[in-house]
C-alpha cells in the first residue's frame, strides 16, 4: 500500500491586509512591492517611461494660461517630448500652477491635486505662481504655494515664453531621471 506522505508545511504568519477570507494565502500589499522595486534597476526603467510621458493638465489660471495653452498646440509640438495636454486631472501627471492662487481658489486647486493619480509633479509657471507677482502682499492672494504642493520646477517670467515651459519640462525630466524629483519618495 502506498503511504501518503504527510508533509508538514510550515505555516508562515499571514500578513493582515484587511481581508481574511482567503485562507492560507500569503498576501502582500502593493507598497511592499513598490518599496522593493525602488531599490532595484526596475525603477530606472519606470522613471524612463514616466519622464517620457509627462501629460500635463490644462488648468489655465491667469494670463500665463494663454502661454500654457499655446504650448500644447501644434506649433511647438510637445509630443516629441511626450508632453501632451489633458483636460481631466485623472489623466494628468503634471499640474502646472499658471497664475496667482487666491484664497478662494486654493481649496479647488487642492481638490484637483487630490484627483490626480500618483506619480504626479507640480510646476510653478510665472511670477504670480511663485510669489504673487503684481499681487504680492495682496489681501486675497495665498502666499507660499510651495508649502502646500511639492513644487519641482519654478519658471520665472511675466509671462514666460512657451520655450521656457518646454525647458522646464526638460528640467523636470532630468530630475526624474536622476531620482531627485519631489513627486516620488525614494
Amino acid at each position: 500500500m502506498d503511504e501518503i506522505e504527510q508533509t508538514n508545511v510550515e505555516q508562515t504568519t499571514v500578513q493582515n491586509v484587511g481581508y481574511d477570507d482567503v485562507p492560507g494565502m500569503v498576501l502582500t500589499d502593493t507598497n511592499t512591492i513598490s518599496d522593493i522595486i525602488k531599490k532595484t534597476k526596475i525603477q530606472d526603467v519606470l522613471n524612463w517611461g514616466r519622464k517620457n510621458s509627462l501629460w500635463f493638465m490644462v488648468n489655465a489660471m491667469g494670463c500665463c494660461g494663454v502661454e500654457l495653452l499655446s504650448t500644447g498646440m501644434a506649433h511647438y509640438d510637445t509630443d516629441r517630448f511626450g508632453i501632451i495636454p489633458r483636460n481631466s486631472p485623472r489623466h494628468a501627471d503634471v499640474m502646472i500652477i499658471s497664475g496667482y492662487v487666491t484664497k478662494k481658489y486654493l481649496p479647488a486647486l487642492k481638490r484637483i491635486w487630490d484627483q490626480m493619480p500618483a506619480p504626479k509633479w507640480v510646476i510653478c509657471y510665472g511670477d504670480c505662481a511663485i510669489s504673487g507677482g503684481p499681487f504680492y502682499e495682496s489681501y486675497s492672494t495665498f502666499q507660499n504655494v510651495d508649502e502646500i504642493f511639492p513644487v519641482d520646477v519654478f519658471i520665472p517670467g511675466c509671462p514666460p515664453r512657451c520655450e521656457a515651459l518646454i525647458q522646464g519640462f526638460v528640467e523636470l525630466q532630468k530630475k526624474i531621471e536622476a531620482k531627485k524629483d519631489r513627486g516620488t519618495d525614494y
Binding site: 511670477d127 511663485i130 510669489s131 504673487g132 507677482g133 504680492y136 502682499e137 495682496s138 489681501y139 492672494t141 502666499q143 507660499n144 510651495d146 520665472p156
Partner: peptide, 14 residues
C-alpha cells in the same frame, strides 16, 4: 483701517 494689507507672510521673491 484694514489690517491685512500688506500681507507680509510671503517668503519667495522674484
Amino acid at each position: 483701517d484694514y489690517q491685512g494689507f500688506p500681507n507680509k507672510t510671503a517668503k519667495n521673491l522674484v
